[in-house]
Design a protein around this nucleic acid. Structure first.
Lengths: 122, 122
DNA sequence: ATTGTTGCAAACCATTTGCATACGT
DNA sequence: ACGTATGCAAATGGTTTGCAACAAT
């Protein structure tokens, strides 16, 4: 029985379209007239992250960034300098992960992959 | 006129061999008998980062991780239940990372890969 | 009435900074 | 003595949590 605020936050993220920190998102929602507390924004983002509806990653300064993720599992290529982020199709990775999984007799293997570099503009 | 503590910290990082948070590194140094304050570890890591001799990235929980640049690295397959850890050769990953790098015009791309699953014994 | 939701204020915790002490030259 | 390096303790700031007021059924 998801609280309505979770839907509100998801909507705001959709509107935002790219990675936003909780505080940026909160400010943006208030600017659009929403009456919602910062705490609730945090809690909603937490819920969405648990439900794997949003991706979470960390900016270099330590702030958490959130963005709606599509249905397909993907990874990110992030610029160290400007924070520009590109979603990557990781077909090769998925195959590799499954190969490693069976090679070592593991089950239910999940993986985290992050690429960090410097983009062409920086 | 680099303080000696910077060298100490660099040495500890080398010993560590992979990404470590400031606090983990500090604890590890103290366990090895070093008399150094947490503040100094932070300051030394800051200096090393400014000099570009260490890479900095962020763990999902927000802690900063530091590693000497140019160290060859491997990846880990970790069991969620018993903590058993296997070191993985990531040749396929390295190739994939380089392909992504050139495809999107990024430079100096580093990557983090962690595999989490359940091992055969559990 | 009971259960779930909200938001304020306080707690948390990694990191940074102020400042007084200790060190090197 | 001078300038630098160090570490304690306090400040910072994003995030989390306790709790009491509040809405929904």
């Amino acid at each position: 029985v998801a609280p309505k605020s979770v839907g509100q936050v998801r909507g705001a993220l959709k509107l935002f379209g790219h990675f936003a920190s909780a505080q940026e998102l909160h400010k943006s929602m208030q600017n659009n007239g929403a009456k919602i507390g910062l705490t609730t924004v945090y809690r909603s983002l937490q819920t969405l992250a648990d439900e794997k509806v949003v991706d979470v990653l960390r900016r270099l300064d330590g702030d958490a960034l959130y963005r709606l993720c599509g249905e397909s599992h993907h990874h990110h290529l992030v610029c160290k300098r400007c924070g520009r982020t590109v979603e990557i199709e990781g077909g090769a990775i998925e195959k590799w992960a499954r190969a490693v999984e069976s090679e070592y007799g593991f089950r239910d293997v999940d993986h985290t992959v992050e690429l960090l570099g410097t983009c062409s503009r920086c």
